[in-house]
Design a protein around this nucleic acid. Sequence first.
RNA 1: GUGGGUAUAGCGUAGUUGGUUAGCGCGCAAGAUUGUGAUUCUUGAGAUCAUGGGUUCGAAUCCCAUUACCCACCCCA
Length: 418
Amino acid sequence: MINIPKGTKDVLPAESYKWHYIENVVRSVAQEFCISEIRTPTFEHTELFLRGVGETTDIVNKEMYTFEDKGNRSITLKPEGTAGVARAFVENSLYANAQPTKMYYITPVFRYERPQAGRLREHHQFGIEYFGAESPYADVEVMLVAKTIFDRLGIGKLVLNINSIGCGECRKKYNQALKDYFATRLDKMCPTCRERFDKNPLRILDCKEDTCKKIAENAPSTLDYLCDDCQSHHNIICEQLDKLGVEFVVNPRVVRGLDYYTRTVFEFVSDNIGAQGTVCGGGRYNNLVEEVGGKPCPAVGFGMGLERLLLTLESLNLTQGEADKVDVYIAPLCDEAKKMTLPLAMSLRKVGKKVESDLLDRSFKAQLKFANKLNAQYLILLGEEEMSAKKCNIKNMQTGESELVDFDKTLEYFATKN
RNA sequence: GUGGGUAUAGCGUAGUUGGUUAGCGCGCAAGAUUGUGAUUCUUGAGAUCAUGGGUUCGAAUCCCAUUACCCACCCCA
C-alpha cells in the first residue's frame, strides 16, 4: 500500500463541511473589511524566499521544500504566504494604484518539519496583507480582522499578545543591549541559546529552558529601546485597542521568526490545542517590498493557521454546519424504471434538489436501508406497478407516509417541499 | 536533527504469570414467508496480531532491529 506522505492530511468527505464553514466565515469577514483575494503560485523561485523570509531563519535554512526543475531553475514550495504576495504587488505594479492595497489569500504552505499536534508539513493559511499604509491604525485594523474572525466563530478565548521590535535603528541598539546583558551569563545558558546569542539574540527571549527563562526575565525589553517614532507608533496601537475594547497583553517575549518584521508583531494564542498554540501571527514588515525588489513600501499583515483554527474550534465544540444531505433518493425496482431514473434525477436537480439514485442494482429492501443511511428526506419508488400507472410512489422518510403522484406532476410536488 | 510513547479486522478495543480455535462493540453484507427503511433477532464476510530476526516444546504476549504514527524539544501558523 502506498500511504500518505508524512505530515500531510486528507480532508475526508465527512469532514469537508467544517472547512467550508471556516472558509466562508473568513472570506465574508475579509469582504466586510474591503479586502480582495489574491492568488499566487504554489511555488516560486527559491531566491524570493531567501530574500523575503531571510537567510538566517530556520524556515529557509532547514525547512524549505526546494528542488531543481527540468530547466535547472531552483524552485521552492511556498513556506509562507507573504513573500509571494509582496512579489506580485511589485511585479504587477499594484503600488501604482491608490493605496492602500488590501489583499487576502487562502493557500497551502509547506515546511519540512517533524510533525506534531498542530504542526504539519503541509498546512493551510488564511492571511491578509496591507501595502502602502504606514499608520499605526493600519496595524490595528489588521488585528481587528483576525479578532473579528475569532468572534464570528465564537472563539473568545484567544489571547492577543503584542510587542514592538522597532525599526532597523532601534533593533541595532537593542541587539547590542541584549548581547551586553547575556554575554556575562552565557555560561549558565543552554547550548541552543549560546548559538542564538550569535545568530539572533532576540530568540533567546522565548527559550523554554527554565534557567534561560529566569535569566531572560531581567533582560532588557525591546520596548525600552524604541526610537521616538517607533514608540509613538506602538503607543497609538495600544490606545486604539483599548478604545475598541480589544483585550491584549504587551508581551516583550513575542518575537517572530521571520526576518521581515519591523515594529509591530503580534500573535493570537490558544491554550488548549497542544504545544503549538499560535493560531495567528503577524506584524509589520516595512522592509519586505524593498527586499523583494520594489520601491520602499510599508506593509502589515498576518497569517492564520487554518488547521490550528479548526483544532481550536473542535476543542470548544464550535464546528458548525453539517455533512452533505440528500433531498431525494430514487429507487428503481425494474429495468423499465432504471431507464427513467437518471432523467428524473436530472430534472429534479435542475430545480435545485440534491438527488441520489441507485447505482448498485440494490434489492428493494437494500434501497430503503441505503436511503435511510443517506438521511434522504424523500424516496421515489419506481416499481412495475408505478411504471404501468405512470405514477411516482413518493415516500416521506420522516413520517413514513407515501403517496402516488403522476409522473408529470412530480416536479410540482417537490416544488412545494421547501 | 534530539528525546519519550504506541502499533491486534474499515474504525474503536480485550487478550491473565508465554499454552493450542485471537474475543467484543461499531461499521459492512444477507435473511426473519417474496413491495416498505431507523429498533430488534439470526447469520455471514473481514486479522499474514506493523515488518524482520531471536529465545522457547510453544510467542499477539519475552528480547533485538527496522518502519510507521502520536507527543514533546527545536521552530512556527
